[in-house]
Design a protein around this nucleic acid. Structure first.
Lengths: 337, 337
DNA sequence: CCTCCTTCATGAATCGTTTCAACGATACGA
DNA sequence: TCGTATCGTTGAAACGATTCATGAAGGAGG
C-alpha cells in the first residue's frame, strides 16, 4: 500500500540514494535522471514520510506555539506572523491553545517535546519558568511571546506593557478624567500586572486622579460584559468617569453592557479605552480607542529569534521589546452631546 | 545529548524491549522492573521520540483539521469538540486555517499527508472533492465538516443548511417582513449556497415576499460592515425591512454599520438575523437572533466518524446531519418604539 | 597514453521505537 | 518425575528517508 523511496527507486531503475538526492538536491543529479525519478514519483503517487525524515534529522520542521486564547484576534495575528516567517524556511507552526489553563499548557509542552519540535514559542500562563528552562537545557529553544523573561534566562519578544498602561491612562487623565476604573485579570498573568503597574504610574503623576481595580476572572467579552454591568448598576455618584480595559475583548464587553440599557453613554458619561487594537475595536459601535501592539511582527520576530537560537545553541538569550502606540478613536473622544 | 530507550535500558539493566513494554503495557512487566525502569527514565530525563514511534506505527496519532477561518468562533468551537474527542483516544488535533484560500488549503492537505495523519477533517473551500477522494483512496480517512459530500463518496458531519436558511427567513416573514436582503458570499462556498436556497424556499411560500441577494467577498465582520453601509446609504424607499446574514460575523458587521449613524434602527426599521449563534451574538449591542448549530458536537462527531473509518477502512461513507435551531433575540423582535 | 578532476550514482549504515518469536525460569497437575 | 502452562524478559528485525564514503565513467590537460 505505502509507496516508499525504495519503490520509486525500483521503478526508475536507480538507487534509493539517488531518489533522495532528487528530492533534496536536484542540482546534484543528472537532468534526465531527475526527470525519470520525478515521473516514477508521480506515477506511483509517492508521498514523503515525514516521520522517517524527522527521525533521521533528529528534529522536526515544526515550531510549537502555545497561546493563551485562540479566540483573541491578537493571538491569531501573532500566529499568522509566526506562520509567515516559518513558511519562509519551509517550516510549520503547530498551534496550541492553553485557554489560560495550566494543565492544557503543560500537556502541549509535553506533546511538543515528544515531537522534537524545532522550538517552542509560548505566551505562558504563570511566572514559573522552570519547565521552560528545563526544555531549553534539553536542547529545545524557547522564546517567550508577549512577555519578558523574569530573570532574562529566556529569549523573548514583547511589548512594553508598563508603557502601554501608562499611555492608556495618561490619555484618559489628559482628557480630564479623574476617577478611573481598571478592568482586567487575573493579575497572575504578567501582561495584566504590567499594564496595571503602568496605569498606577500614570495616576501617580496626576493630582486628584484615582484608580479603582476591578478584577475579572479571565479576559473574555463575557467577563467584560459582567464587569460593565456591575459598574452600570451603581448609583450615579459612584460611577467612574473612565474605564481602562486590559484588552479589547474586555473593552467590547464593557461597551456592550454600557450600551445595552442606554444608561451609560460612551464617551460622554464614561470614556473607554482597550488594549491590543484588534480589528473589531475600530468596528465597534463606538469605535474603540486602544493601545496598538504589532501582533504580526511579534510572531514574525519570535520565530526569527527561535531560528537563530536553534542555529547557535550557545547564543545568549535575547530580549526584543517593541513600543506600544496609542490609537485614539471615539470612545475616549470629546463628549459629543 | 539525546536519551533513547537504549540508554534507559542500560541504566536499568534491562533490554530495550522491556523499556518499551513499561511504556506501553506496564501490566505485562514485573512491578519492580517497572519501578526500576521508571526511575531510570526519570533520572535520565528520557522523552519518547514521537517520530520513531510514528515511523514504526505507520500512522501518526494526530488528526488534521482544516477550517475556513480560525477567527470565526463557530470553527474554534468545532475544533474544541474535535480536540475533546481526540483526547479521549490520546490523539491530537493539528489545526490548519485555510482562510478561504485554495492554496493554503492545498498546502495543509499536502502537509497532513506527509505527516501520515490518522485522518483529515475539512471544511472545504470549493466543490472539488477529487483531491480528497484521492487522499482517501490512498488510505487517509476524510470527513467533511459542516458540509455534505456532493456525491456521497465521503463521510460528513453537517447541519442542514437549507433548513437553516428556511428557518431564518420564515421567521422574518412570519414577523411581517417582506423585503428581505440576503447578505453573504461567495456563493461558491456550499454553506452559503445552501442557506440561500433555503431562504428562497421560504420566500416562495409567502406571497408578496421578495429576496434581494447582496454578495460579499468573504464572511468577515468587515465585509458585513461594508454591506451594511451600502444598505444604509440608500433612499428610505429602497431599504429592505429585514436582513438575513449568512453568518454571525457578517451580521455583527451589518449591525455595526446600521448603528453607527443611528440612522437605521434594529429591529424597528430593519430586522436582522444571523447564523451560527456564536457567543458574541447574544452579547451584541442588539442581541442577535440567529440559527444555532451544534458546533462542538459537530467536531466531536466528526472525529468519531473518522476513528470508525480508520478502524474499518472498507466502511461505507456515512452522512450525519444535524438540524439547526432558531434562536430568537431582540434583533428580530417586536418593534420597541 | 597516462594522470587527475569532475560528475553521477551507489548502497550500507543510521536515526529510536515497537513488535514478536523465542527462551529461561518457576509453578502446577498428573 | 515429566510434561505443560504461565510469566517475564530478551534481542533482532522492521519502519522509511538521509547521509556519506566509495567508486565508476567520462573529460581535460600534458
Amino acid at each position: 500500500m505505502a509507496v516508499s523511496v525504495r519503490d520509486v527507486a525500483a521503478a526508475a531503475s536507480v538507487s534509493v540514494g539517488t531518489v533522495s538526492n532528487v528530492l533534496n538536491r536536484p542540482d546534484k543529479v543528472a537532468p534526465d535522471t531527475v526527470a525519470r525519478v520525478l515521473a516514477a514519483i508521480d506515477e506511483l503517487g509517492f508521498v514523503r514520510n515525514d516521520a522517517a525524515r524527522q527521525l533521521r534529522a533528529g528534529r522536526s520542521r515544526s515550531i510549537g506555539l502555545v497561546v493563551l486564547d485562540v479566540r483573541n484576534p491578537f493571538f491569531t495575528d501573532v500566529a499568522r506572523g509566526a506562520e509567515d516567517r516559518a513558511a519562509e524556511e519551509g517550516m510549520t507552526i503547530l498551534l496550541g491553545n492553553s485557554d489560560e489553563n495550566a494543565d492544557r499548557e503543560r500537556s502541549y509542552l509535553d506533546l511538543f517535546e515528544e515531537q522534537r519540535v524545532h522550538g517552542v514559542l509560548i505566551s505562558p500562563l504563570g511566572d514559573d519558568e522552570s519547565r521552560l528552562q528545563r526544555l531549553r537545557r534539553r536542547g529545545t529553544p524557547v522564546v517567550l511571546v508577549d512577555r519578558v523573561s523574569e530573570d532574562g534566562g529566556l529569549s523573548s519578544v514583547a511589548v512594553d506593557d508598563v508603557v502601554g498602561g501608562e499611555l492608556a491612562v495618561r490619555h484618559l487623565t489628559g482628557g480630564g478624567r479623574r476617577r478611573i476604573a481598571f478592568v482586567g485579570g487575573p493579575t497572575s498573568i504578567r501582561q495584566v500586572a504590567d499594564r496595571l503597574e503602568g496605569a498606577r504610574r500614570a495616576i501617580a503623576e496626576t493630582s486628584g486622579a484615582e484608580l479603582e481595580v476591578i478584577e475579572t476572572p479571565s479576559l473574555t467579552v463575557l467577563d467584560g460584559r459582567a464587569a460593565g454591568e456591575a459598574i452600570r448598576e451603581r448609583p450615579a455618584a459612584d460611577l467612574p468617569d473612565a474605564v481602562f480595559a486590559v484588552n479589547d475583548l474586555l473593552a467590547m464587553g464593557v461597551l456592550q453592557a454600557f450600551n445595552m440599557m442606554g444608561s451609560v453613554r460612551v464617551p460622554d458619561d464614561i470614556a473607554l479605552i482597550g488594549y491590543d487594537d484588534i480589528d473589531f475595536a475600530a468596528a465597534a459601535v463606538v469605535p474603540l480607542s486602544s493601545i496598538r501592539q504589532p501582533a504580526w511582527l511579534i510572531g514574525y520576530t519570535a520565530v526569527d529569534l527561535l531560528l537563530k537560537a536553534a542555529a547557535e545553541p550557545d547564543r545568549a538569550a535575547e530580549q526584543v521589546v517593541f513600543q506600544p502606540e496609542l490609537v485614539v478613536r471615539d470612545s475616549t473622544g470629546v463628549a459629543t452631546t
